[in-house]
Design a protein around this nucleic acid. Structure first.
Lengths: 159, 159
DNA sequence: TATGAAACATGTCCTGA
DNA sequence: TCAGGACATGTTTCATA
């Protein structure tokens, strides 16, 4: 992964709609080698996938809720059931196992508080939770899917 | 926005690399009307953008940290400066103003705890914060950019 | 819905370090 | 041997009727 690959990644994580020709021009390559690099980045999994990002408000899910969960069940079977229940709830868009006093953190998107209550009930119906506390976001000030590229290790040799 | 639009959105937010021809076939349209619908969804902002999602581990930012921030400054100028400082820190990928006892919530991605300390220092150097508490994620169990489509209001008439 | 021009993707082959 | 470049072919995009 050299400087040109990084440039390609920077472009594509900002605008996945760029054509190969566009990218080639911007990174100073002709179409073929650029296309080969992109394909290589996809095949080796550096580029995980390409997606369209939709507008939360237009889809009527403008409200974000963070849910802190504590549990007294700390066995793998319970977690597997929990993970699978959460996976089936499309309103849950992020789900982390945490260090510290909170065990799990969920990010949920819904139209309003009433709808959040519906998700909450689905959640506690599916799985036994010890303590659940919800915080509402008033404003989304920044949201990006673009990762920082400053920490990438150079792998020019292992290509 | 009718059922076919929803189907198009569902496909594109899962796989933004699908060609128009692919989508047309899957939603049961011929190429031209399908293409017009996609363009309309882009022009009206329902599709905000297309991006490539990269692999956190491959880019050496496998560690996620949530940062809860409390402040004693509640004026718009301070928030504007805070927002702009955060915008300049690429490690901060999400940033919300919260209701409740925490004022702001950040999600940060870094390679390790040492790197997080660097980001933390940049943050407090840029802006005056009252109370900062960090929680580390041990495991990302679910992360999706796909929004739930179940709450979309039908706008067939207003097309 | 159909047609068609232009742009694009993507394979093969060739060149030079 | 490896990365870039030229070219050829099938596909896709997108305007028009």
């Amino acid at each position: 992964m050299d400087a040109i690959d990084l440039k390609i990644l920077a472009l594509l994580q900002e605008d996945g709609g760029l054509s190969n020709a566009d990218i080639a021009e911007r990174v100073g390559l002709s179409a073929t080698p650029c296309w080969r690099r992109i394909r290589h980045l996809e095949e080796t999994g550096v580029i995980r996938r390409r997606v369209a990002l939709l507008d939360r408000d237009r889809l009527n899910v403008g409200v974000t809720v963070f849910v802190n969960i504590r549990t007294n069940q700390h066995n793998p079977e319970w977690l597997a059931r929990f993970a699978s229940a959460v996976d089936d709830i499309p309103e849950v868009v992020e789900f982390y196992r945490m260090a510290g006093d909170v065990d799990y953190l969920l990010r949920i998107v819904v139209p309003d508080i009433a709808a959040y209550d519906g998700v909450y009930k689905r959640l506690i119906a599916a799985i036994d939770l010890y303590d659940v506390s919800s915080s509402f976001a008033m404003e989304e000030i920044k949201y990006t899917t673009a990762l920082p590229l400053a920490y990438v290790k150079d792998r020019s040799s292992t290509r």
